[in-house]
């Protein structure tokens, strides 16, 4: 085992202790719910409309940019790990890869994907 048993155990222990604490508060804390208390909080006035609203399309663009760059990073990590062995060839290949991505960033920039009004 490469140490992942400790990871899995810690996940289990953290989850269990969190559940235990929340469960404890169920027994120790008061429970007197009423309609006023369980309405969404909107600064004390009765809530107007639903919160299942549409939100700005900008956030979707951010998500797309993230996917592009995160996949780039996924490719870069093995390269960085093996850079010493790959030498000059690896360097040139990765610079080309990064340039392609940089062109993508410039395109998004010029298209106004980074403007936030």
């Amino acid at each position: 085992m490469l140490g992942y048993e400790a990871v899995i155990l810690l996940l289990a222990i953290a989850g269990t202790i969190a559940v235990v604490f929340v469960g404890l508060s169920r027994f120790l804390g008061p429970r007197n719910l009423n309609e006023e208390k369980t309405t969404p909080y909107e600064c004390g006035v009765p809530p107007s409309g639903t919160a299942r609203e549409r939100f700005p399309v900008r956030y979707y663009i951010v998500a797309m940019l993230f996917i592009i760059f995160d996949i780039e990073v996924v490719f870069l990590y093995p390269w960085a790990r093996l850079f010493r062995e790959l030498g000059m060839v690896g360097f040139v290949e990765m610079i080309l890869f990064m340039l392609v991505l940089l062109v993508g960033l410039v395109y998004a920039w010029r298209k106004g994907a980074l403007e936030w009004e």
Binding site: N32, L33, T38
Partner: peptide, 12 residues
């Protein structure tokens, strides 16, 4: 103190 508080889940 936080354990002693009510565990509130909004109705909506």
């Amino acid at each position: 103190k936080l354990i002693m508080k009510e565990d509130l889940v909004p109705a909506a």
